[in-house]
């Protein structure tokens, strides 16, 4: 498998605070890589290192096979575009003028393609409106358009749906999917909004407290996300005793509700509960969400990292 981005024990410290701790990850070509972590986990820090805004304290990364210490890394970065945290543009210019500036900076010979880009991100009707007067969603889309100048094949989006309304979220999602499918652009998208990532990503990297906890493909994740039975019983304490005797994994939710993990025959379960004078009132099957998977993976000590 070919990898666009590979990091090897990448670390970044700010004085005594270790923002990234030996991060090793690989972004496959053609993937939509969901970079998942809580606030302060180190997602943006990693992205800043890859974009050249900051230097790593230790470790290395390669972009298109070029090491970050190589003088040719600048040429490698020409194949990528990024929106880091908030989109960076000139507020006193229109969308088209901003794109022209970007084209000029990239040394592109002509402004062909600007209209198509504006159409792609749905900013073709903004006319003479200055970018500083755009809505948040429009600013995000302008940031993506700027990142797409020069036809990159690797796009890095740092929390692109933060602060967007539902329609804005849908627009960004559809845009990312279109870019990946139609233009075969590899996308690294960081977010802590897991439900949205679940609709997009083909690969995941989970990061917590500056360390990569797990890398997994969407298919593997789907297989791993546990199914469970949500049961309503007449007495949850009796239910717990019965399950303890069987060595089953369960979670008591209230006096009458519980989640039961693993494979069980409903008839057997009902009989076992009836033997202890506990009635099985209802039973529904559920699948573990990405959110639950992540929380189980990193623990639920709560709170963001400073």
């Amino acid at each position: 498998m070919e990898f666009i981005l590979k990091t090897n024990a990448l670390s970044k410290s700010y004085r005594k605070f270790r923002a990234l701790d030996s991060v090793t990850m690989n972004v496959p070509k053609g993937a939509i890589y969901g970079f998942v972590g809580r606030n302060g986990a180190g997602k943006t820090t990693l992205i800043r290192l890859i974009c050249g805004l900051q230097e790593p304290s230790a470790g290395e990364f390669t972009l298109y096979g070029t090491k970050h210490t190589d003088s040719k890394i600048a040429r490698a970065r020409r194949h990528m575009g990024a929106v880091v945290e908030t989109p960076a543009f000139y507020g006193d210019m229109t969308a088209a003028e901003n794109l022209k500036m970007q084209y000029a900076m990239l040394g592109l010979p002509s402004y062909d393609g600007i209209d198509d880009l504006l159409k792609l991100v749905r900013l073709d009707d903004t006319g003479k409106k200055k970018a500083k007067n755009f809505s948040l969603g429009m600013k995000q889309r302008l940031g993506i358009a700027l990142a797409l100048c020069g036809n990159p094949d690797f796009l890095i989006l740092d929390e692109p749906i933060n602060g967007l309304d539902p329609q804005g979220i849908v627009e960004i999602r559809e845009l990312i999917l279109r870019l990946n499918r139609e233009r075969n652009i590899t996308v690294l998208i960081s977010s802590h909004i897991l439900d949205e990532l679940a609709k997009l990503a083909t690969h995941y990297g989970f990061i917590d407290k500056g360390k990569i906890v797990q890398e997994i493909s969407a298919k593997e994740l789907e297989a791993k996300c546990r199914k469970y039975l949500h049961v309503k019983v007449s007495d949850a304490a009796v239910f717990a005793n019965v399950m303890d005797k069987r060595g089953a994994e369960y979670e008591i939710l209230s006096d009458t509700e519980a989640n039961l993990y693993g494979e069980f025959r409903i008839s057997e379960l009902s009989a076992a509960l009836a033997a202890e004078q506990c009635e099985l009132l209802s039973i529904t099957e559920h699948e573990e969400s990405l959110e639950n998977y992540f929380i189980n993976l990193v623990g639920s000590d709560g709170g963001d990292r400073a």
Binding site: C51, A74, R77, G81, F89, L146
Partner: peptide, 11 residues
């Protein structure tokens, strides 16, 4: 603004 960040990202 984009004056510093964009050129760095562009290489």
């Amino acid at each position: 603004t984009g004056a510093i960040r964009n050129p760095l990202i562009a290489g």
